Structure formats: structure tokens, C-alpha cells
Amino acid sequence: MNPKLKQLRPGKIVSGVAAVLIVLLIGANSFVSVEYGHVGLYKTFGKLNDNTLSPGIHFKIPFIQTVIQVNTQVTKAETDTSASSKDLQPVSTHVAVNYSVNKTSAFNLMNNIGGNFDNVIINPAIQEIVKEVTAKYPAEDLITRRDVVSSEISEHLTARLAKYDLIVNDINIVNFKFSEAFNQSIEAKQVAQQQALKAENDLRRIEIEAKQKIAQAQAEAESLRLKKQEVTPELVQLKQIEVQEKALEKWNGVLPSVTGGATPFVDIQSLTK
């Protein structure tokens, strides 16, 4: 074999391998996969393209273009806010907001705000709106009317974030925290209400029992009145005869000895009649 050919062959092999690697590298950088629940945006030399890419595989110019992915799934943002109620009670509110990015407006959001929009837009908006709404209600109403407070916060937050193409899916007030003095006053009020309710129930029970006794007494009086109406002179005489008959059954035939003109205990005349 020609010695010159032997010297050229390793160089060609290296060149061939390098060419294959370059082709593979270019090929690998020519396609990008957009994940499910995301949309993609082309970025060419640092400039965003408003062409929105749906989930799947897409072509891009190797080493020139990149594709940034924007999560459009529902995401949760949690924030703690310190404010004062209408009656100047300090209150700490823990709020959880479920939001999502509008798919069709992802370019505007990323081009105007950037990927850190949760810290730039969402959290400050929650802080401001929660403080604004809680200041409208007394501290006790924040507890008893939580659904109303939550609805008002959601309404204001939805309008605020819509300007940045963000959708508010749901909002939850996880917890209200008040001062220890206020908690004690609420507890004392609840105890007083329970005692008042118990006293009211006892009074009602006593009134019912009194009415029952009155009704019972009236029933007994009515029964006695009816019984008195049934007592006639004939009935009295009949009862006397019954008593005398029973006495006669027990009589041994000997009349008792009496003095002083007393009337015999058996009326023989009435019996003979």
C-alpha cells in the first residue's frame, strides 16, 4: 500500500467523524419540544417572536434561536399580608391564589414583564388589595363574613391581573390572625352569648312548665266541677242506703244501747221502704 495513502486515511476518518458530529449537533439543535401545559416563544438573538408554539416538537434555527416555555397550567401563589381592620385591629392574612397565564397573550406577558411576573405583579397586587379590602370591615366581620371578604378580594384581583393577561381561577383566605387581646375578647363574648342562650332556654322551660301546671290545674278543676254536677240528692240518698245496707249485713241483730235520745245508726224505716 502506498505510504501516502496510509498517512491520509486517519485524517479523513477524523474529518468524517467530525462532520458527522457537527451534523448531529446541528440536528439536535434544530428541534425543540414544548412540554404539555406550556406554550413556546421563539427568541432570536434576545428578541422574542410573537409566534406562539403549542405543545409538541418544533423546528428552530440552530445556535441562533432558542425557545422559552411559558407554563399555562393553574399555579398557586401564597402570600402573607399584615394590615388593620376598620376598627384598627391588627390582622395578618394568609391568602392562596390560583392563577394561570392566558395562552394567547403569553407573548405580551413575557415581553413586557418577563418570567418573574409572580414576584413583580402577582404578590404585590395581592398585598395591596388584601390591605385595601380588610380595612373596610371590622375585625369581627372578617371572621363571620369571610366569604364576602374573599369574593371582594377576588373581584379586585381579577380586574388588576387581567391587565397583564393573567387569569385568576380561585382565591382562598387560608387564615386570619388577630392579636391575643382580640382573641380573648371574642372568646369572652362567645361565653357570654352561650350563657345568655342558656338562661333564655331555662326561662322558656320554666314558662312551659308553668303553663303545663296551669293547664293541669284547670283540667282538675273542670273535672271536679263536672263531678259536682253529677252529685244529686237522689244520688246522695242512694249512697246512704248502700252504706246502711252494708252496715245491716254486718249487724248481729242486737240493737245498741243508747242514752240521751240519740238516733239509731240504722234507719229501719228507710230500709223498709
Rank of each mutant, 00 (worst) to 15 (best):
L197K: 14
A181L: 12
K177D: 06
E200F: 09
V174Y: 01
F178Q: 00
V174K: 11
K198Q: 11
N201Q: 15
A196Y: 05
K189E: 14
V191D: 09
E200N: 12
F176S: 10
A192I: 00
I171W: 02
N172D: 11
Q184Y: 09
A181I: 06
F182L: 03
N175Y: 01
Q195P: 06
S179E: 09
Q194V: 07
I171R: 05
Q193N: 12
N201G: 05
I186L: 15
E200Q: 14
V191W: 00
A192D: 09
A181G: 07
K198A: 15
A199I: 13
L197G: 10
L197A: 15
F178E: 08
L197V: 10
I173R: 05
I173C: 02
I186Y: 04
E187L: 07
N172V: 13
Q194F: 05
A199W: 03
K177V: 07
E200W: 02
K198W: 02
F182C: 00
V174R: 13
I171L: 15
A199T: 15
E200M: 04
A188H: 07
K189S: 07
A199E: 15
A196S: 13
A196M: 07
A196D: 13
N172H: 07
F176R: 01
Q195T: 01
F178Y: 06
I186A: 09
